[in-house]
Write a protein that binds this DNA or RNA. Structure first.
Lengths: 215, 215
DNA sequence: TGCGAACCGTACCGTACGGTACGCATAATT
DNA sequence: AATTATGCGTACCGTACGGTACGGTTCGCA
């Protein structure tokens, strides 16, 4: 588990007061606990011991509050930088397996699932603004890490592919398959995550079969 | 495009009046058009020229209406049975590519996306009842077809795998990757589908590289 | 010590929804 | 022809939510 949660970094990164960060934290808690229906302005105000007036002053709008929640949560997720040391076939494989485990950990997290459900629910109206926000903010860190890893593998002549994004898509599909959707639909995330553990190495091996250069 | 839509089959399959099927059709239209917020009992009654009282008599509840919509829609999707003829490497590959295209067609359909969004939105509360319903009803047909195809391929000694469900998971991941989630989050489904077309064969080739016996 | 800004708690308003009840028309049945 | 069932249209009720306004309080600052 290398995805680090830093308590106040999310607030600072988004240019928010510590108090506002605490409010967003409580809002995320409400969302995780009871879904979108629990995310009412009155409920957030009550849970965070602040007034609705402050909520509207700080975030402008209910959608602004949600957007701030997404940005705040994305700011909390930090991924380890790829080690710049020498890359062998074994270390590459280990890094890929670690990436797979971290990816599943992130996708199966309570807050991640709740925010994805919320954004998907709002996707029909409002032109997918929250969806894009979630996609960009959320995938940026994890995607950057994968891209760096793949690029390093290619530079070390351990991987072979034409386009890095396509290779990443293949890796992603092999790792995730339909697990994310099933979790979003309500299947027990913990059970699926446990069931996945032995599959991580298989997925990486499949990816190396497809894109490994020295096999 | 081999997923066939049969007008009244959905109604008959679910034991519904033709009139009730028409009502569900309008309800699906409303849902596709405006998302969950447009799916109000008054709106359905107005759009379908029926009374709210009839809605409650027929479907009991708003959730009952939604469940009926899912069942009705699932009853409309029929997939072609795998041709029982001789299976060569070329015909197997062609069947797999056709399956990939059909799978993306189904997943990117307006109604499918709308129902998935709805079920995901309701997944937090109510113990994932709609989610399971959608998963079982929706995946049954397409999954059965894939299983038959894979099993036939193994029997013809063209494919090699230990567990059919794991192989199917691999195939699914290679085909879909994160396209489904991106569409659910609001990315333009038509654009993604067009972008996917050339990738279908690559996905199948990758699957055959992993599980093809004669390579 | 006096002042102003920020903010909490609460009350309030308009709206919209789920669900129910009633009056009336239409069609089938006896 | 009379009766019954079905169902449409509408009105209604209770509730809950988003958003706004107001009085009182705390805290920093001069």
């Amino acid at each position: 588990m290398q995805a680090i949660e830093q308590g106040r970094a999310g607030a600072a990164a988004a240019g928010l007061t510590e108090r506002q960060g605490a409010v967003l934290e409580r809002a995320l808690g409400l969302l995780v606990e009871g879904g979108e229906r629990a995310l009412t302005t009155a409920g957030v105000a009550r849970a965070a011991n602040c007034s609705k007036e402050s909520l509207y002053k700080w975030f402008g709008d209910r959608d602004g509050l949600i957007a701030a929640m997404i940005t705040y949560q994305a700011g909390k997720v930090r991924t380890v930088e790829a080690s710049a040391g020498a890359l062998t076939a074994e270390t590459l494989r280990a890094h890929l397996v670690a990436f797979a485990v971290d990816l599943i950990d992130v996708l199966s997290g309570d807050v991640s699932l709740a925010l994805n459900r919320l954004a998907i629910g709002q996707a029909s109206r409002e032109g997918a603004g929250l969806g894009r926000l979630l996609q960009e903010r959320g995938r940026r860190q994890i995607g950057k890490r994968a891209a760096a890893l793949l690029e390093a593998g290619r530079k070390a002549k351990l991987l072979a592919f034409d386009r890095a994004d396509e290779a990443y898509g293949t890796l992603y599909g092999l790792i995730v398959s339909d697990m994310h959707l099933r979790m979003l639909l309500g299947e027990d995330a913990a059970a699926l995550r446990k069931e996945f553990s032995p599959r991580a190495e298989k997925a990486v091996d499949a990816f190396l079969t497809l894109h490994g250069a020295k096999r």
